[in-house]
């Protein structure tokens, strides 16, 4: 038994869109320094869970605690304060195309008035170097970068303010297998470097095996299995077996509209 307060604690988290129940009752705990990967098929509620934690969507019920502090119902200023602990790598990188790369990386530092522009630029260049990009990339526009480079810049932005918790939304989607492995390696290294807790959502099993300490599987808005990465192949769950082996036959029924 440990008395350690979970970094993230979800209890009975519920979210609906009209009549559609996307999150039924999600229970999940992520301990400090842990790398939790949430897996699940398309439309299972992975992204909605992440958006509820970040406050981008308002949960209909349940509890979301960060470092023991309840997030549901807090004021916007308190939420912004807590958001300073977060870093986030978006699926499509979500770089601001009106700003050069270095300003994208330094955006959080400048927004929080932590550094002046000269110092923030130095930190941004250092973070770019950390993700394998040369300093001259800093002056380019995001539109001039390849998909893999955009992901790296997104990762540099996520770690720029040395956050306590980093979220990764489908970090390898749209990348070739080699670039996916490079990004996975960088994620592991960067998370270790800043000593952060990491929550990743993905359906890429190679990412899971590379990034995860623990894995949670979400299905129909509920967490149906949680355990360490090395037990995923012998979980005893037909759902997990079907998912990790990518079989069409099994208990998981994909919602496919037939013409």
């Amino acid at each position: 038994m440990t008395d350690m307060v979970p970094k993230i604690s979800l209890k009975g988290l519920r979210k609906t869109f009209g009549p559609k129940v996307v999150l039924d009752s999600v229970d999940l705990e992520v301990m400090p320094g842990e790398s939790m990967v949430i897996i699940g098929g398309s439309g299972s509620g992975k992204s909605v869970t992440l958006k509820c934690i970040l406050g981008l969507l308002i949960a209909d019920g349940g509890s979301i605690k960060i470092d023991g502090q309840e997030m549901i119902g807090i004021s916007n200023s308190d939420r912004r304060e807590i958001l300073t602990k977060f870093g986030m790598l978006f699926q499509g990188a979500a770089l601001f195309d009106s700003l050069p790369v270095w300003e994208n990386v330094a955006f959080g530092l400048l927004a929080q008035r932590l550094y002046n522009r000269t110092d923030a630029k130095e930190i941004a260049i250092e973070k770019l170097r950390r993700v394998g990009l040369s300093p001259d990339v800093g002056s380019l526009s995001p539109a001039e970068l390849s998909g893999g480079m955009q992901k790296r810049v997104g990762l540099a932005r996520a770690i720029a303010a040395n956050p306590d918790i980093i979220f990764f939304d489908e970090p390898t989607t749209g990348l070739d297998p080699i670039m996916s492995d490079v990004i996975n390696e960088l994620i592991v290294e960067c998370v270790k470097d800043v000593g952060a807790t990491a929550v990743t959502i993905t359906h890429d099993m190679s990412s899971v095996r590379k990034i995860a300490d623990n894995v949670a599987m979400i299905y129909h808005g509920n967490i149906i299995w949680t355990g360490p990465k090395n037990k995923i192949d012998h979980s005893g769950s037909d759902y997990i077996d079907q998912f990790i082996n990518g079989k069409a036959e099994g208990p998981i029924k994909m919602e496919i509209l037939k013409g």
């Binding site: 912004r80 958001l83 959080g108 927004a111």
Partner: peptide
């Protein structure tokens, strides 16, 4: 067009995660 593109490419969500109020910025 600019704000709409920022919305659909999650740039406005990214602003929020960077502790920036999209209304102010």
């Amino acid at each position: 067009a600019e704000l709409g593109t920022m919305r659909v490419t999650e740039q406005i969500d990214a602003l929020v995660t960077l502790s920036t109020d999209p209304f102010k910025y």
